[in-house]
Simulated scan of single mutants.
Amino acid sequence: MKFLEFRETRPGEYFPPIIPNGFFARPVGGDRLMEILVVTDAGLSCNGVSSAWADLRGISIDGDIACLVSEKYVSGGLRFYLGECRFIGESGNMQKDYSGYPVEYCLMNRATFESQALAPRSECL
């Protein structure tokens, strides 16, 4: 199995960039930008619904819709529109990018980073 290599550029910062905690997007079926996820060290949560990083089975993109795939819930995962995602940076302002990359891809990097961290070392060879 081949893994994506994340290099630590500064303490706690990596390339490819992984999003810090917090995430806003327009959910599929929604008409406005809202906080749909709280990104934490343990996983993702929103309004009492949560998924540990280990619950995520992957990420799929279909046109302008991304899905964080999970078998934990009947819906099959959390869907949101690409290109309309934000997170609140250190400045307190909403940002569309992080380290020069769209935040939705940094979220996908974070999911990959966390899942690789949970994988047994023998799988990384």
Rank of each mutant, 00 (worst) to 15 (best):
E71A: 10
K96L: 13
G83H: 06
L82E: 02
F87C: 07
P17C: 10
S50R: 11
V69G: 05
A117Q: 13
C124I: 10
D62E: 15
E123C: 09
S99F: 15
P17K: 09
E84Y: 11
N109W: 04
D41T: 09
L56S: 01
L125S: 11
A119S: 13
A111M: 08
G58T: 06
I65S: 06
G76P: 00
Q116W: 10
E114G: 02
M34E: 14
R79K: 05
G76L: 02
R110K: 12
S50G: 10
F23Q: 01
L107W: 00
A111D: 02
I61E: 15
G30C: 12
E114S: 07
N21K: 07
Y81R: 06
S122T: 12
P27Y: 01
R79W: 00
V103N: 02
P27F: 01
V39L: 06
V74S: 06
M34V: 13
L68P: 00
G100Y: 08
Y98R: 11
D41A: 12
R121Q: 10
A117G: 10
A52R: 13
Q95C: 12
G58A: 09
K2F: 07
S115I: 13
A111L: 12
Q116A: 07
F80L: 00
V39N: 03
G76E: 03
I61W: 06
A66P: 01
E123R: 08
E35F: 05
L68H: 04
Y101N: 12
K96C: 10
I88W: 01
K2H: 08
Y105H: 06
T112Y: 05
I61L: 13
S60M: 07
A66W: 04
Y14R: 01
R86A: 06
F15R: 06
V103M: 06
D55I: 07
F87K: 04
G63F: 02
M34G: 07
P16A: 03
A119K: 12
D64Q: 14
P17N: 13
K96Q: 13
R57L: 14
A54P: 05
M108D: 03
Q116G: 11
K2P: 06
G92H: 06
M1P: 02
F24P: 00
G43K: 08
Y105F: 12
F6S: 08
Q95V: 05
T40M: 07
P102C: 11
G89V: 03
F23C: 02
K72Q: 05
L4I: 13
M34P: 00
F87D: 04
S115D: 03
Q95Y: 04
G76Q: 03
L107N: 01
D97S: 15
E104S: 03
I59R: 08
D97V: 10
I59N: 09
L78P: 00
N21D: 12
S70E: 07
S60P: 02
D31T: 15
M108F: 14
